[in-house]
Amino acid sequence: MGYDLQRFQGDVDEELICPICGGVLERPQQASRCEHAFCEDCITEWLKRQPSCPVDRGTITQQELVPAPRILRNLLGRLTISCDNAESGCDAVVRLDALESHLYECKHNPKRPVKCEKGCGLPVALDELSNHNCVYELRTKVEEMEKELREQQVKMAEQQQEMKLLKEVVRNIRAIQLGNSAEPEEEDAASQISRWVTSLPTARVSRWGGMISTPDAVLQAVIKRALIESDCPLWLVNELMENAHERKWPPGLSSLETRQINRRRYEQFNAKRIPGKQAVVVMHSENAHMGDSMILYPGLVMIFAHGID
């Protein structure tokens, strides 16, 4: 529906009036054949009943409608109109193209967002402020955030599964290129991992809060050198170091929020210390019980500022 003519100052050219509702054009659309213009809502409802122009009865369809030309929109924008909230006490008269921004700030707008001063600080529509319940709204917001977090965790778990499948494909291709089946390569990889992990001392992490989830390149290079010096197979070194940053970690560890949620589960990790460093490896082969949300193949590198015994 168009704008009520009574709200405008001075005369309004008839070319700016919708022939369907008789009001000033609102979000004008134009029929591409006859070039007649209508309010978007008006012509949409009209065409649901009959596919013809309301002015000359020529055939038109929804697909033939196009936005009104710039000159028509400019003429509309220059018209001056009273505020929607005139009956509530606002006496402002503004250009039509500035009406939307005025309504957002209008002190008489019952839907103007204001900051709740009861404690939660959330933006609330002015006419809903008296019935606003801080506890309910905050609980709703927390539930929305938790839902979004769960959705992100599911998505990341799916991505991790895709990565595992992709690595499996790569290993199979490598085996074929070497003229071997994939199974001996898997067996050989498993035995290499087992032999190396067995040689490492068991680690006890006393301060999980000291974890460095985003180590810089220098720190990663130091840990990588330590892995090599511990006789870690070179192919395994590279894969482990890829998993030394939270961007590669599984959903249960991939952000500060999820790590806080799962902090009680850390004690269930079977961790081995990287000799001489405040860092541990948590291998998939020894931590399958943790599930895909907490562990990656072949394993994770966790670097700490302190707290490794």
Rank of each mutant, 00 (worst) to 15 (best):
G10C: 05
L16W: 09
L16F: 10
I20E: 11
G22Y: 10
V24T: 08
V24W: 08
V24H: 08
Q29S: 14
S32N: 11
S32P: 00
E35R: 15
C39I: 06
D41I: 08
C42A: 09
Q50Y: 02
V55M: 12
D56A: 05
T59M: 07
T61E: 09
Q62Y: 05
V66M: 12
P67A: 13
R73E: 11
R73D: 03
L75C: 12
L79Y: 08
S82H: 11
N85L: 02
E87G: 01
G89C: 05
G89D: 07
C90E: 06
D91H: 11
V94A: 04
D97N: 15
D97M: 08
D97C: 14
E100G: 00
E105H: 11
K107G: 09
P110W: 08
P113F: 05
P113M: 05
V114I: 15
V114M: 13
G119F: 08
C120L: 10
G121Q: 09
P123W: 07
L126C: 02
L129P: 01
S130E: 15
N133P: 03
K141P: 00
E146D: 10
E146C: 06
E148S: 14
Q152V: 00
Q161C: 05
M163L: 14
M163K: 13
K164L: 14
K164A: 11
K167Y: 09
E168Y: 05
E168W: 05
R171H: 06
I176C: 11
Q177V: 07
S181R: 12
E183K: 12
D188V: 10
D188M: 13
D188L: 13
S194Q: 14
R195Y: 03
T198I: 01
P201H: 07
P201W: 03
V205S: 02
G210T: 04
L219F: 01
L219T: 12
A221F: 02
E229A: 15
D231I: 00
W235T: 02
V237H: 01
N243I: 00
H245R: 12
R247Y: 05
K248W: 06
W249G: 01
G252C: 09
L253V: 04
S254L: 01
L256A: 15
T258I: 06
R259W: 04
Q260C: 08
E267Q: 14
Q268R: 14
V282D: 02
H284D: 14
H284L: 08
N287H: 07
A288V: 15
G291E: 06
I295W: 10
L296R: 15
Y297E: 13
V301M: 02
I303R: 02
A305C: 01
H306S: 13
G307A: 04
I308D: 01
